[in-house]
Amino acid sequence: MSPLLQGVLTILIGVGGCVGYFYASNLILDKVIFPPTKTDPGRNINRANIVRPWLFLFPALFALGLYLVYPVIGSFWRSLYNRAGDEFIGFGNYTTMFGDAGFQTALFNNFLWVLVVPAASTFFGLLVAQLTDRLSWGNIAKSLIFMPMAISFVGASLIWKFVYANNADIGLINAIRDLFGASEPLDVLQLRFWNNFFLMFILVWIQTGFAMVILSAALRGIPEETVEAAIIDGANPFQIFFKIKVPQIMGTIVVVWTTITILVLKVFDIVYTMTGGNFGTEILPSYMMSYMFRDDGRATAVAFVIMIIVLPVMIWNIRQARAEMR
């Protein structure tokens, strides 16, 4: 069967199955298990209403449990076993991994990424949001800067491969160097240490739009009285921005920052497409992928390290959500 046909069939079965499940389960609950009997209809209706939320939730909870909760435990469990998965070696994978030079490089680079990408994206996002705020063509500018969000990491990597190309007739970087009299083209992706920053800029390029959209909305939400009062008191535009506006949107800035931080810990595509992790550019997600299919024990151990790094953000998010609900 061709995959396309299979896809159409899956949509039909999936959507039909969901609708059927929800309809039928509600019907059965109301008519068969707890029918509103003549003697005491209210009691059965109440009982049905206690069960009903779980009918609504069941498919989602099942999928979440299977595809996101179980893997956390499953991955941890698998990381305690050796490469073939038949011998329990405790934290053996972790100890060999932490001794591996490749892992140390990946951890260090990832540290750089987490430091640079969220900061740069938020900075550019805030800059664009503020600059375009009053501009007549601001929406067009924002739309164009937002555009890379739609492009895949692979596509973006290819776009930047052209810019970084080791040839003054293809790569803009080398064309500009050529203009200033450099004789030899330079492969910026092979410059040790600095190549990481060239890779990071691709992600900054993608994520700036995200930061911009959210911060732009936050800037619009600032009460105008505060800005007007500052103007009357003689504040200059920079003071208004740094002393009046930024403090008021600090909460949003933190959210944007952490969201991009989480993303940085997951993206392996850019490194994979641009350098394949060579020339000292490995980061944790790409390091993990290099062990995927080869050594599941090591791969899951790396994944679990990523999870531990993400954990503080996760706890903070949950606490925020709980605070909002109260």
Partner: peptide, 8 residues
């Protein structure tokens, strides 16, 4: 939750 955990 990082997707990486789910793969294996």
């Amino acid at each position: 939750v990082p997707l990486q955990l789910a793969l294996v």
